[in-house]
Amino acid sequence: MNLFRLAGDMTHLVSVVVLLLKIHTIKSCAGVSLKTQELYALVFAARYLDLFVHFVSLYNTVMKLVFLASSFTIVWYMRRHKIVRRTYDKEHDTFRHHFIVLPCLVLGLLLNEKFTFREVMWAFSIYLEAVAILPQLVLLQRTRNIDNLTAQYVFFLGAYRVLYIFNWIYRYFTEPHFVHWISWIAGIVQTLLYGDFFYYYILSWKNNVKLELPA
């Protein structure tokens, strides 16, 4: 465990906690894409299949449980909670996320580290995570006044992957045979997708103006 990876995991944790607190306290999910939340729940479900069969560390197990619980809780809130579900911006959250699940599954079948069920699911989850933010970014472009918590959620979610890239660089130079092309390429694609969001987010933060993403 290196500092970049720990910082990455903590930033990822902060992003889901920020979102969960927002939804739980103000009972609103305005500006939040249910599709992105569903994709993330799928990412964790596919990636953490080895939760009970492959013990890495207490930290690893606890964090997996936290990510699984939080992502499914958020989906539950947005689908089932009688107050929260009414604040869901259904008509603007129209990204056809089925169109990204299938290609990621096919890619997972074609490009994986080993052709086993768990490895294919792992690769699928890595590809899916790289594009899971797309519905949320599209929704932000359509949302007039983006509330701070949602913007912070997206920012931390992007920041965690940037930190992971530093983690991979560090591990590449410190651990022999540490090569994970799948994570590296998908992680870079994922980070690039946040590119313009980061640009406008930092600009709005610097000029102290409301965040606006050009449509």
Binding site: R5, H12, E113, K114, E119, W122, H180, S183
Partner: peptide, 10 residues
């Protein structure tokens, strides 16, 4: 060793 499938990262 099948080190590739022990994904130790989250």
């Amino acid at each position: 060793a099948n080190e590739e499938d022990d994904h130790d990262e989250l």
